[in-house]
Amino acid sequence: MFSIGEFARLGLVSVRMLRHYDAIGLLRPAHVDPLTGYRSYQAAQLARLNRIVAIKDLGFTLEQVRAILDEKVGAEELHGMVRLRRAQIEARISADLARLRGVEARLRSIETEGYMNTAEVVLKKLSPVRVAQLSARAASYDGEDVGPVIQPLFAEICARVDRAGIRITGPGLAYYRQEDDGSVMVHACLPVDVAPGPGHDFEIRDLPAVGTAATIIHHGPMEDVGPTFQTLAHWIEDNGYRPLDLAREVSLHCPDDRAEWVHELQIEVAPV
Rank of each mutant, 00 (worst) to 15 (best):
H263F: 13
G143T: 04
Q230D: 10
F2T: 00
Y41K: 10
R85N: 13
D33W: 14
P255L: 09
A247M: 10
D33V: 13
A213E: 11
P243I: 05
L12R: 15
V225C: 13
I4A: 15
I157F: 11
E120L: 15
A214T: 08
P128K: 03
S183I: 00
L35G: 01
P128M: 05
P243G: 08
F2K: 10
I204W: 12
E90N: 08
R51F: 00
P227Y: 01
E237G: 10
V184C: 06
P191H: 11
P221N: 13
H79W: 06
S94F: 00
Q178Y: 10
F2A: 02
G80H: 08
K124V: 12
S109L: 04
E268W: 11
V272G: 03
T215N: 12
A155T: 14
D33L: 12
R205C: 08
S14D: 06
V103L: 13
E260D: 15
A195M: 09
D245L: 09
R177A: 07
E104S: 09
L62A: 05
A174D: 10
R85I: 03
E6G: 04
L26M: 11
N50V: 01
G197R: 04
L27N: 08
E111T: 04
R48M: 04
I110C: 03
A54Y: 00
D57E: 15
V122G: 01
